[in-house]
Amino acid sequence: MTDLNPTRRTVLCAVAGMSVLPDVPQNALAQTPPSHTALSVTLRINGADIARPIEVRTTLLEFLREQTALTGTKKGCDQGSCGACTVHIDGHRVVSCLTLAARCQGHEVTTIEGLAQGDVLHPMQAAFVAHDGMQCGYCTPGQVMSAVALVKEGHTGTDDEIREWMSGNLCRCGAYPNIVAAIRDVADHTPARG
């Protein structure tokens, strides 16, 4: 192909030359009897199975806070704008307020309560205490969960990189510099990946 101009014509050509498109939507569109607006779910949270009857519209955040005693995960905005409800699903950080509990079945959920080994704090938790990476503490569980994921993702090259990759977690008390210091401390004591 000599025409490098990415125009509509190119797209159509490229698509025409494509192999077969993914086959999935058939699955999504087949007619099946609808289920109800309530159902029973079993979620694997911090290594334990928790079964509850719920309404389908229950978010993971509400499931944790209202249906179990796992209130460490916080509701700050309920709209994905603050990060206070950050948990890990299969090791990835997500906001639990925009996650339907029913869609978490078959996945591993880790909350702040699942981080420490008994009484022994996770290194990130210990670093937050040592660097005072908190004040009121309400955003703290979400900050810690995000920070643990951030180190695993490898975004600790510079302090600016840490700041950028922690910007999904608001802290109104303004503990940001101490949070960055805590993460820097952990990153410097964590063997590089690979």
Binding site: T73, I112, M134
Partner: peptide, 13 residues
């Protein structure tokens, strides 16, 4: 260290 820091980082506050 903040004496309630441990509770806060564990989600127990």
């Amino acid at each position: 260290d903040r004496v309630d820091g441990r509770l806060k980082v564990m989600g127990h506050a």
